[in-house]
């Protein structure tokens, strides 16, 4: 599974980047979301994955009796997911606003701040 996941992560990164290179603002944001999904999975994978042993201490004991999934990456990903949710919701609203003021979804028409003046 690790091998498959690694390829999947690569695919997520690649597709995210490809979407970012398009001219549509919506695609750009989708690309960013794909990218951060990729990064989250990467943390998950590189923190080493374990099947079927959630890091929850059993009812009757004080600590773990045998190997269990590393909870640290999970905590990190949780934080990262929530943070990216914050950013994504802001980004989505930014699309809305951009469409209202610039009247387009085309990134190539948002160049005025880089022009010589």
């Amino acid at each position: 599974m690790e091998f498959l996941l690694a390829i999947l992560i690569g695919l997520l990164y690649a597709s995210g980047l490809y979407m970012m290179l398009r001219r549509s603002l919506v695609k750009l944001i989708i690309g960013l979301i794909l990218l951060s999904n990729g990064a989250n999975l990467l943390i998950f994978l590189l923190g080493r994955i374990t099947k079927g042993k959630p890091p929850i201490i059993p009812e009757e004991s004080y600590n773990f009796l045998d190997a269990y999934a590393d909870p640290v990456p999970q905590a990190l990903i949780l934080t990262a997911i929530v943070i990216s949710f914050g950013l994504q919701s802001f980004a989505i609203v930014l699309i809305k606003r951009a469409y209202k003021v610039v009247k387009t979804d085309d990134l190539d028409q948002m160049n005025s701040t880089d022009e010589f003046s």
Binding site: L28, N111, S112
Partner: peptide, 10 residues
């Protein structure tokens, strides 16, 4: 949310 702000912000 003015035009140039949005363009720069993106």
């Amino acid at each position: 949310g003015e035009k140039k702000q949005i363009e720069g912000a993106v």
